[in-house]
Design a protein around this nucleic acid. Structure first.
Lengths: 180, 180
DNA sequence: ACCCTGGCTCATGTAAACCATAGCCAGAAC
DNA sequence: GTTCTGGCTATGGTTTACATGAGCCAGGGT
C-alpha cells in the first residue's frame, strides 16, 4: 500500500512555541481540551445522538430509530448529555398521549456545529461514491458547507501556518512543578 | 440541574430539505459521512495519536509517551491509520541507532485539521479554568484559531441558517428502493 | 561473533460500549 | 377503577477498547 502523498518530504504540521516545544514534561493528564471533548462526545453513540439532534430529531423514539442504537444506550447517552449541559429537556404533549420530554440542543450543544460540519466534510473523502449521501448547505444560497480554520483577524489559516503554545505559560509551569 | 439556555423556545437546528424531511426511511446504514469518519477516528486512542501527529510527534516512543496510551494500542492504531491513508511511514536514522520508520500525516490526515481545531475550541468551554491548557494560534499574527462554518460563497453560516438535504436525490431514492 | 537497544508483538485481564429481551410504570382514555 | 400505550430501565451476554507485562527480533556497536 503506497500513499502517493504530495506533501511527502515536508513535516509541516503545527509549529511548537515556547515551553510547549519541550513537550516531554506534560504528557497526557487533562491539560488538553481535546481530551475533555472526548470525555463528552468521544463515543460513537454520543456523536450519533448529537447528529440526530442537529438533523431535527428530538424525541426518544426518533433518536433510537434514526441512530440505530438500542434504547438503553440512547437513554444513557441522553442522561450524560443532559448532565454535561449539551441537551435540555422540554415537556411536550401529543393529542391522546401523556406528557413526555423531548430533547433539544443547548447553546453548548449547538456549539458542536463546526465539528459536525468538519466530520461530514472529511468523511466525504473517505470513499468515492460521491453521489449518494447527505449534504449540508446554506439555506440562503444553497451551496454546501465547509469548516475552515481562521484566526481572530479573519485570516484563513492552513495547517502549516498554525502553531501550538501554552496558554498562560507561567501558570502552567507552576502547576506542573506543583504536581511533581 | 437547570441549563439556563438563551435559546430555550427555539428549535433552530438544521432545516430538512426535500426527501430528507421524511427521514424515517433511511435510518443508519452507512449513508452518513459522520459514521464513516467515526469508523476511522471514532476512538479516543485514534484521536490522541492524531493530535500528537499534529503537535509534531512522529516517532513511536513519542507517540506512546505523549498520548499516555500503551504501546500495543499505539502500534495497532498506527496500523489502522496507515491502512486508512491517514499516516505515511518514512524511514529515519539516528546516529548509533538502527533505521526505523517515523509516522507523518498524509494529505487526508492533515484534512483533519478543522476537526482538531473545533474540538480544542469546544473543549475550552467545558470547564472554566481558562488559564491553563494549550492554545492554537496563527503563526503570522499570533491570535488564536477557531473553526467557522462557511458556504462556498464565503458567508459565515450559523446553525440556524443551515440545512440538510440528500445529495443526489433520485440516485439515493433508487438505492433505497433497491435495498428494500 | 556477540551483545544490546528499542520498536513492536503476543498473551492475558478488565472495563466500557453496545445489543437483545423483558419488564416497569406514569398517565391518558374509557 | 381498569386498560393500554410508550418512554424508559434492568438484566445478561458479546464485542471492542484499553492496560500490563513478557518477550521477540532487526540490526548497529564492539
Amino acid at each position: 500500500m503506497d500513499h502517493d502523498d504530495s506533501a511527502a518530504g515536508s513535516t509541516d504540521v503545527l509549529e511548537r512555541l515556547g515551553a510547549f516545544s519541550d513537550r516531554d514534561d506534560w504528557t497526557a493528564k487533562g491539560w488538553c481540551r481535546i481530551e475533555r471533548s472526548l470525555d463528552v462526545i468521544g463515543t460513537r453513540s454520543a456523536m450519533l445522538v448529537v447528529r440526530e439532534l442537529f438533523y431535527g430529531g428530538s424525541r426518544f423514539d426518533e433518536l433510537t430509530r434514526r441512530t440505530g442504537l438500542s434504547e438503553a444506550v440512547v437513554a444513557g447517552r441522553l442522561k450524560q448529555l443532559y448532565a454535561d449541559g449539551i441537551v435540555d429537556r422540554r415537556p411536550y404533549r401529543e393529542a391522546g398521549k401523556r406528557t413526555r420530554d423531548e430533547y433539544v440542543l443547548t447553546g453548548r450543544g449547538r456549539g458542536l456545529f463546526p465539528i459536525i460540519v468538519a466530520m461530514v466534510e472529511w468523511g466525504e473523502g473517505l470513499r468515492d461514491d460521491h453521489r449518494s449521501g447527505v449534504e449540508l448547505v446554506h439555506r440562503d444560497c444553497g451551496t454546501s458547507l465547509s469548516a475552515v480554520v481562521t484566526c481572530e483577524k479573519g485570516h484563513e489559516v492552513p495547517v502549516d501556518r498554525a502553531a501550538v503554545r501554552l496558554k498562560d505559560e507561567e501558570y502552567a509551569l507552576a502547576g506542573l512543578r506543583r504536581s511533581k
